[in-house]
Amino acid sequence: MNLTSYLALAAILFCIGLYGVITKRNAVMVLFSIELMLNAVNINLVAFAKYGMVPNISGQVFTLFTIAIAAAEAAVGIAILLALYRNKGTAEADKYNSMKG
């Protein structure tokens, strides 16, 4: 197995996540797509840790940090979403336009 296969897999997952972020209307699914994009980046980090020019365990450490940050992001995102839902009565991302100029 070579590096490019893993990078291509990560690119595909990243682009699917990006498409989801742009087109999904439910805000929970937007958050979920962001998690998918973060996971694609994690695959890149771990692949470079094994097959990169200087194989090093640092890539895996970075991935652990990324997972921790992503978990915190998901928790805060869901909390913000619940607060928004309580105020606006909807979970659709299109309806959150009260800051629109």
Binding site: Y6, L31, F32, I67, A74, I78, L81, L82, Y85, A91
Partner: peptide, 30 residues
Amino acid sequence: LDAPFLAVTQILIYTGAVSILMIFGIMLTK
């Protein structure tokens, strides 16, 4: 990719915690 610890962490945090969190988010919003 020779990262068994990360694999276990991934299952614990993503398929376990984050998915359940998101399902809660889905259920608590109409």
